[in-house]
Amino acid sequence: MVNTKVEIFRKRFREGCRHVFGKTAKERTFNIILYFIFVLFLVIMLLPFVYVIIESFRSQELVNGIPTQVWSFAAYQAVLGGSESILRALGNTLFVTIVGTLFAVALTMIGAYPLARHGLKGRSVFLVYVLITMLFSGGLIPFYLLIRNVLHLTDSYAVYILIGAASAFNVFIVKGYYQGISEELHEAAALDGAGEFQIFWLVYLPLSKPIVATIALWIAVGKWNDYMTGLLYVKSQDMLLIQNVLRDMLSQATNTSGMGNSSSQMALSESIKMAAVIISLIPIMCVYPFVQKYFTKGVMLGSVKG
């Protein structure tokens, strides 16, 4: 009885292997090597994150006067409980990401609509107007002086929301998407007496959900990862974003490494850094599995019509 069960299991296992790896011996060797390469690839891709996770739980404590390595949540407690700056920065970033994304999406979706309307007088001028922003820019310093000395946007939340709110690339992608929507729908709605606002709001916008999701996600990731705006234009510690606080934390430790800190402090600071990294990644990792398809969809749209 036992023997037959083992036999059945072996047979099933062999069949399973053949199903995945192929029927002939040559195919099987090829596939096994291929899968091995990909497992190696996965390990390399994930190793830095495994390191961060392990390091964040590793801390050194004095046990009977001897520094000993222990596993604990000490670093997370230190990050979340000890300093208010990181929590505040998380709150700021969440606010800036949500408001900034809403603003940018509205600006892009509305602005791209007239660009997609054939027969609109002045459309080609508008197209060139947008295109030039893609080709030529004033560069860092004129932009820097504009924000600081002309618009006086330093130390305000507005600076986070306004910078990068519209890009020619996104506008062109949305315009391409609008043009893919059947012109007949527009004509039918116009015949029913709908104005352009209504056609945009009731016909085009509901049909554009995938592209809204795509550009919203791109912008949101950009806002979450933005450190340059805070670095250049925000001096107030209370208004900094998570990337700025992380940057300060991470660079601090590289500066002090090799200096005369006691080893327990050093180890804790390393784990605190990594715990902060994990905390900053959690929001992205939480939504990532659900939104991944929209990211890739956008790239394909961008590749078909720019």
Binding site: L107, T108, I110, G111, A112, Y113, P114, L115, R117, L120, K121, G122, F126, Y129, V130, I132, T133, F136, S137, G138, G139, I141, P142, F143, L145, L146, V150, L151, L162, I163, A165, A166, V171, G195, E196, F197, F200
Partner: peptide
Amino acid sequence: FWPLYLMALPLVVYFAVFNYYPITG
């Protein structure tokens, strides 16, 4: 068609301020 021009306005203003003005810089 005036709504179309009105819809284009925010984007035109945005690019004028944040892209074209720095070019003059």
